[in-house]
Amino acid sequence: METKLRTAAIVAFFAILVALPLVNGDSYVRHISIIAIMYAVLVSSWNISLGYGGVFNFAHMAFFAVGAYATGILTKTFGFSPWFGMPIGIAASVAASILVCLPVLRLKGIYVILVTFAFGQLCLQIVLNQRELTGGNFGLVQIPPLEIGTFSFRDHQNIGYYYLALAILGLTVAVVSWFARSRFGWRVVALRDNEPYAVSRGVPLSRTRLLTFALSAVFPGAIGAVYAQYVRSASPDMFGFSFLTLALSMLLLGGTGTVWGPIAGAFVFTILSEVMAPLGPGRYLVTAVLIVLILRFFPKGLAGIPQFVAQLMRGSRTGQLYPTESA
């Protein structure tokens, strides 16, 4: 029964997204939907390393930026076909993820945050440095868009990009669902739950970590490429604190370590930010407050709400939402 309901919900979710452009042609709605879908892909793939893997990988958004820049540079400056954009983005992002994972293998806790964050800053410095190639501070502009014959993906309010992003989201959901119930996924979770125990049961630590990073980096690479072709630019802001904080709040809002939490987080948050758009920078204040409130009172995010409600109904607010975190 529960699985049937679940399947129905998934089908309904994608049916609505597939049908949306048919009933609504508004370019603003289209843009917001594309952005929300892209965020959903970014956040739910981040969930693989940060949520399931428990590795505090703060380089995930840098993988996205690396994918976007690699695509932009190779298709614009070096004349590769835009259709090579996505493979280029994925290859660059996965390569970057393996590079950053090597030091991570030797480190724990705060050092993982620092080294992954420093990696993003290193990429940023290189981007700023190589102005001829990357456009430096001003960003890389006029990245060639995707076209099939005379049909541009920008036609009909970017309908091509919309469905391309949606297809990537579908693939992401499929992969994350498979991952969560695969032997590989168990190994990743086992290492998060208890690393020495997992190693003592023959779980290969380094190989699993590297594969976790590589798998989670495929999606930001793909979305980075498509994003660069959609907005036709890549900017140094993609390496910034604000972008990282925004994505992090989506992940926390949705709930780490679940398939649907991060996707819900991305959609709810993107729509929320648009609703709050008239507030200007004020909406970032709301964002910041929201993150802290979630961490304080809903450490499991949206995904934890059903359990929270169940506890309320049973009248046991004393039940811990955080079984592992109490000292």
Partner: peptide, 27 residues
């Protein structure tokens, strides 16, 4: 304080705090 993951939680809360202060300054 006292939570097992305090180091990592503090990164997130203080990052949010920085985000809050910077945007307040802008406002």
């Amino acid at each position: 304080l006292g939570q097992k993951q305090i180091v990592l939680i503090a990164v997130m809360t203080t990052l949010s705090g920085a985000f809050f202060i910077e945007n307040s300054a802008l406002l």
